[in-house]
């Protein structure tokens, strides 16, 4: 009996942890071929914070995000969004895919892309009314792209495209924002604009998770880090977890001395 109580106690504790987190993942394994891309990963994203997912190329960062969102089907594992299965919480989640995964030649305008964020509200056949358009324009204003509303998306620079995608996520009005490499290949002005918007979101109590590449900016931008190399390496507050030992463990020998030199002093 005692034994049973003990195990149940543990389960209850695990369940409250799952319920409290905006995004909690347990035992997630994803495989594209024979080798797993993500292996048995646990992750607990803290609420109202900015979390960076960090790891070398091919470490499964994007795959982890996609599996959490149901875009790829995991072999095993459990995902809870605000304590419930993802399917029941789709309205509370916004996703910004990698810019490179999109065909920017697609015949559509900036404003139409942002309006896609209102799909759940508009439904199959709902008319786009002036208030929807105003909201979309408002989201574009927040990322400094209002004047480009009528442009074809292919005519934008990479940074501008990324900001349009962020505006679409804003239009969704979600509580949890998952961004896949939003700073990859963008100009400095865009990086500033994006991080400003993400910090606004955090101040409004939203949770932000970003797949991030640039180790030099981690301490400036994020509160929390999750280090991955197929398996989880470490997770926790930046101050405690973003250490040279953990980075070496995640990157193996691939982290050069030059890269280490770029890190802010806090990590070293």
């Amino acid at each position: 009996m005692l034994e049973l109580a003990a195990t149940q106690g543990q389960t209850v504790q695990a369940d409250t942890e799952l319920a409290a987190s905006p995004l909690a993942i347990r035992g997630l394994t994803v495989s594209y071929g024979e080798k797993p891309a993500v292996f048995s990963v646990d992750m607990t994203v803290p609420a109202g914070a900015m979390t960076a997912i960090i790891g070398p190329n091919g470490a499964g960062k994007s795959t982890l995000l996609k599996a959490a969102l149901g875009i790829v089907t995991p072999l095993s594992g459990r995902v809870r969004v605000f304590g419930k299965p993802l399917k029941e919480q789709l309205a509370r989640v916004a996703y910004v895919p990698q810019r490179a995964s999109i065909d920017w030649d697609f015949p559509t305008r900036v404003i139409d892309v942002v309006l896609m964020g209102l799909y759940r509200e508009l439904g199959l056949l709902g008319r786009v009314r002036p208030r929807h358009r105003d909201r979309a324009l408002g989201c574009l204003r927040r990322v400094g792209m209002e004047e480009f509303a009528g442009r074809q998306i292919g005519q934008l620079s990479g940074g501008q495209q990324q900001r349009v995608f962020l505006a679409r996520a804003l239009a969704q009005g979600a509580d949890l924002y998952l961004l896949d490499e939003p700073f990859a290949g963008v100009d400095a002005a865009t990086e500033k604009a994006i991080i400003a918007v993400l910090k606004e979101l955090k101040q409004a109590g939203k949770t932000v998770v970003v797949v991030h590449h640039d180790l030099a900016t981690v301490t400036d931008y994020f509160d929390h880090v999750f280090l991955i190399n197929t398996r989880k390496v470490a997770e926790g507050p930046v101050t405690r977890t973003f250490t040279v030992e953990n980075l070496q463990a995640a990157y193996g020998g691939r982290l050069t001395l030059a890269q280490l030199d770029q890190l802010p002093q806090s990590a070293v």
Binding site: L69, Y95, P97
Partner: peptide
């Protein structure tokens, strides 16, 4: 006509379309 929006959305950005359910 009926599936215009889903068709357009999923042709443009399939991953995003899936996160909309």
């Amino acid at each position: 006509w009926l599936l215009w929006r889903p068709l357009k959305l999923s042709t443009f950005d399939e991953g995003f379309a899936r996160t909309l359910g």
